[in-house]
């Protein structure tokens, strides 16, 4: 009776956006006379950091400082339509909408700056620090607050933009299943190391190490947050979680966190990752999306690691100690039968 170590891997893809498309999001941008650029949305932040990454994308696309961008979201009276936050779509869809809105707003900014600085709009650039300046002559510049004031009081223009992103709805061919089921594909490869107690069937996950390819990271720390949280959720799906402990029976359905096992701070294994960036063609600044996929690859990696450790395939989730112990007993019996 002993503890056995094993290593398993899994490589997965994850499609961005609602499967068949047809899931629009809009963004509106306007500058106030304080130099604040308000991005109005109806998108929701689930904790993944949407409000932050959209402000980053907006600031980048507008060419203004992050601090000058305000996200005003999630009010259906004021915010334009968004399909919702799911399907790893929010950064991709809303980000694209914001970029388009920013392009329109930038056009007005440059028109006004062109009048103020007396150069052609195409000779202007933003410095990302809050100024529009003449290319090659940075001392000739106008601050965005002055610009916003001038636009409003002097030229009677609103610095604003409308943005929309929709991937046209794809149909499914009923006979062949031909369809267009993604906007872009992100990828992950996870290697899990486990220790299995062959006397109890207990699995201790020692480490979950992964590589991700997600197009571009808008905010690496927020990406890391998704990876850490998703890896632990994947581990929990693999080993602990179920609303039907004796599936398909419905008995003993957990009624709370006492019985429904969500890992606690002491159950977290070492989680390490690297992130590759191969910008996608259609994502904002090449973004693909990372939200959902982080919970996927750890599951098969852990199941494969259990096999590597003790030689049984646990193909019904979660891989509880009981299932592993039963499989080990079955394996021992087969080996005894084989030896006879």
């Amino acid at each position: 009776m002993a503890k056995h170590r094993g290593v398993g891997m899994a490589a997965v893809n994850y499609p961005t956006g609602m499967n068949l498309g047809g899931d629009p999001s809009q963004a509106l941008i306007h500058a106030t006379t304080t130099g604040t650029f308000v991005i109005t949305l109806s998108s929701t932040d689930l904790g993944q950091g949407l409000k932050t990454v959209i402000a980053q994308i907006g600031a980048e696309a507008l060419g203004v400082p992050f601090e000058n961008v305000l996200i005003d979201t999630a009010d259906t009276d004021t915010g334009p339509h968004c399909m919702g936050t799911f399907a790893s779509r929010a950064t991709h869809r809303v980000g694209n909408a914001v970029i388009r809105a920013a392009e329109e707003a930038r056009k007005v900014m440059f028109e006004v700056a062109s009048e103020e600085l007396e150069v052609a709009p195409e000779d202007l650039e933003t410095d990302g620090q809050g100024n529009i300046r003449v290319k090659g002559s940075p001392e000739h510049s106008i601050n965005i607050v002055d610009l916003a004031l001038a636009a409003h009081f002097k030229y009677g223009k609103t610095i604003s933009g409308r943005g929309m992103y929709i991937k046209p709805k794809s149909e499914v061919d009923p006979d062949t299943g031909a369809m267009d089921p993604d906007s872009t594909e992100a990828h992950a490869c996870t290697v899990a190391e486990v220790e299995v107690d062959d006397e109890t069937g207990e699995v201790k996950v020692l480490s979950i190490k992964s590589a991700y390819e997600i197009g571009r990271q808008v905010n690496p720390k927020l990406v890391e947050g998704q990876i850490q949280g998703g890896s632990l959720m994947g581990m929990a799906h693999a080993l602990y979680e179920t609303t039907a402990p004796y599936y398909p029976a419905i008995d003993h359905a957990p009624g709370g966190f006492n019985e429904y096992i969500v890992p606690g701070p002491q159950d977290q294994p070492e989680i390490e990752s690297v992130v590759l960036e191969y910008p996608s063609v259609n994502g904002p600044f090449g973004v693909k999306g990372v939200g959902e996929m982080t919970a996927n690859s750890p599951i098969p990696a852990i199941i494969n690691a259990i096999h590597d450790a003790v030689g049984v395939w646990i193909t019904e989730l979660p891989a509880t100690p009981e299932k592993i112990l039963r499989a080990l007993e079955e394996k021992r019996k087969e080996e005894e039968r084989g030896a006879e």
């Binding site: 947050g225 632990l232 606690g264 701070p265 989680i271």
Partner: peptide, 20 residues
């Protein structure tokens, strides 16, 4: 010690590492 002290506090999002 930190993990033991926080063992009654569940987080579904972060995976705890950043909290520790």
């Amino acid at each position: 010690t930190i993990r033991e002290a926080l063992s009654g506090n569940l987080c579904r999002c972060t995976g705890y590492q950043a909290i520790v």
